[in-house]
Design a protein around this nucleic acid. Structure first.
Length: 290
DNA sequence: AGGCAGGTTCTTA
DNA sequence: TAAGAACCTGCC
């Protein structure tokens, strides 16, 4: 099906924003017949593979805000529209930034224009961010992909025919032995993932029920999980629970705060959207340096 | 070859 | 309560 999106929406930036790890641009088809395909708008038309829990779509950029999605209208309305958070205006959120009083964030937001905070699944996010500690993004993606291949099932394929697997359920993940988890390059995080899977599969932890908790209570619950500290908990709150005021502080963000906001970041000015601002700062600092 | 990467836990004062 | 060390693994 085809859609048109007027608000901020940049697939490449979202894919590179560090909030999701199974959202990838498909490599341009090289090695094909030389020259014969050139008439199709050159190489401007990018395609992305997006996997979330047990769903997958391919999206092709058609330009001018138009996109071709490999799903039915019903799937789009019932799932993907919400996944991409299309009910919220990110241009309105950016408009809260005053170029005069906060020039650095303003520049960062112009640079990161198009980023949205996806409405991802708390379970997938919890495991993903537990894995993320002391890893770079390619390594995180590699680990998660191995996990999905090992304990998920085929849910589709990308443009180049590569199979895409579902994210493992708590039951399937908890059934894996520690050695099997280790084979996914989890390193010392294998025991964290195992424990989290056991907690959720057993029902001792009910991530869906936690949606009803107050912010402070939710944070407390998350910090009680083995392998979850303040940073991972904030990522879970922002990306897994879509509470847009959460502000995860990683090494990059801390550098930005130290250098650019020595007297403190103006959280009060941007509530309840500090998490969106964090994304702009993170994306910008990673690309441009601080 | 040694250091480091989107942290957290464990161990010491 | 607060620093410091240890931790898997892959990639410079």
């Amino acid at each position: 099906m085809r859609i048109k999106i007027e608000d901020d929406f940049d697939l490449k930036k979202i894919a590179d924003s560090g909030q999701c790890f199974r959202f990838n641009e498909c490599a341009a088809e090289i090695g094909g017949k030389s020259g014969t395909e050139e008439s199709f708008g050159g190489n401007d038309s990018r395609t992305f593979s997006v996997a979330a829990s047990d769903r997958h779509i391919n999206i092709r950029e058609l330009g001018d805000g138009n996109y071709d999605l490999s799903c039915s209208e019903e799937d789009f309305e019932s799932f993907w529209k919400n996944y991409f958070d299309l009910g919220l205006s990110y241009s309105d959120i950016r408009a809260k930034i005053d170029p005069e009083s906060d020039p650095y964030l303003y520049v960062a937001s112009e640079y990161g224009k198009g980023i949205r905070i996806l409405r991802q699944d708390p379970w997938e996010m919890l495991i993903s961010f537990i894995i993320s500690q002391r890893k770079n993004i390619p390594a995180i993606k590699a680990s998660i992909e191995k996990l999905c291949e090992r304990a998920g099932y085929v849910i589709g394929e990308d443009e180049s025919g590569r199979k895409i697997y579902s994210f493992p359920t708590p039951e399937r993940l908890s059934a894996l032995r520690l050695e099997e988890l280790s084979a996914c390059s989890l390193g010392y995080r294998d025991k964290y993932v195992h424990q989290a899977a056991m907690d959720v599969a057993s029902g001792a932890v009910d991530l869906e029920a936690w949606r009803e908790l107050e912010d402070a209570q939710l944070m407390e619950k998350l910090l009680g999980l083995f392998g979850v500290g303040v940073k991972v908990a904030n990522c879970e709150i922002l990306f897994g629970y879509h509470r847009l005021d959460a502000f995860p502080k990683d090494v990059w963000i801390n550098k930005v705060l130290d250098v650019r906001y020595p007297s403190g970041f103006p959280f009060d000015s941007y509530a309840p959207y500090n998490g969106v601002m964090q994304q702009y700062l993170f994306f910008f600092s990673r690309s441009e340096g601080v």
